[in-house]
Design a protein around this nucleic acid. Structure first.
Lengths: 116, 116
DNA sequence: CAGGATCCCGTTGGATACTG
DNA sequence: CAGTATCCAACGGGATCCTG
């Protein structure tokens, strides 16, 4: 089994969260689950994300081998993002996050509100 | 189904990651899966975490109803942290994160290294 | 033992303007 | 359309010292 300490993580959960955590990556991956998406398409879906952040996050996902970037040499430019085969391995995890969120997030949010 | 936009999230995955994401929460939850733990016990297990961060993260988990804080009125002080019943709902998710990490993190880390 | 209080810094991330 | 380039504010998070 992998020695996570060697990579600076205290356990595999920490490593996983380092890879798909953060404010945007989970959402980006979620939208890529049902197929390739263009840059502006992802931007619209994410709503509040800025161009800068979308680019940065996509670059990291690409570096980590999770997302593939396909550039079409056209004018106007066209770039499509899709999950790599390796990225597909995240599918059950993303779906479970969505599932948990749908069933439990409201409880947490109401709790937070009642204490503010 | 919950309206995540109303809470400022673009989808349920984003909300879930906001609750259990970050550098430490996943690990803390992971260690709490197999029963209650004392403060210093969690600190040792997490290795690199500072007292300050451990306290902050535990407070947030407590606020969100995920972790229960039991204070024993003794000297020296004794505090035990455990998952609430609500917190138990995260168990499959945490376990899946661990699972994914164990099988795939090494690939990502080697890839990062070869490009640095 | 389990923290609280301060200080401080690096990174994250937002706003805006510009470009092939 | 799909980015880059800057600038800047906010926050996460570390180090250190103190305490009931």
């Amino acid at each position: 089994m992998t020695d996570f300490k060697a990579y600076g993580y205290s356990c595999s959960v920490a490593a996983t969260l380092d890879i798909i955590g953060g404010k945007w990556k989970g959402v980006i991956l979620f939208y890529l689950l049902d197929g390739k998406k263009r840059f502006n398409e992802l931007k619209r879906l994410n709503g509040e994300i800025t161009q800068r952040m979308l680019t940065l996050q996509l670059r990291e996902l690409e570096r980590d081998g999770i997302v593939h970037r396909e550039i079409y040499k056209e004018i106007p430019p066209k770039v499509e993002y899709s999950l790599t085969e390796f990225g597909q391995s995240l599918k059950p995890l993303i779906l479970m996050m969505r599932e948990w969120g749908e069933h439990h997030v409201e409880y947490v949010m109401e709790k937070r509100k009642n204490e503010a």
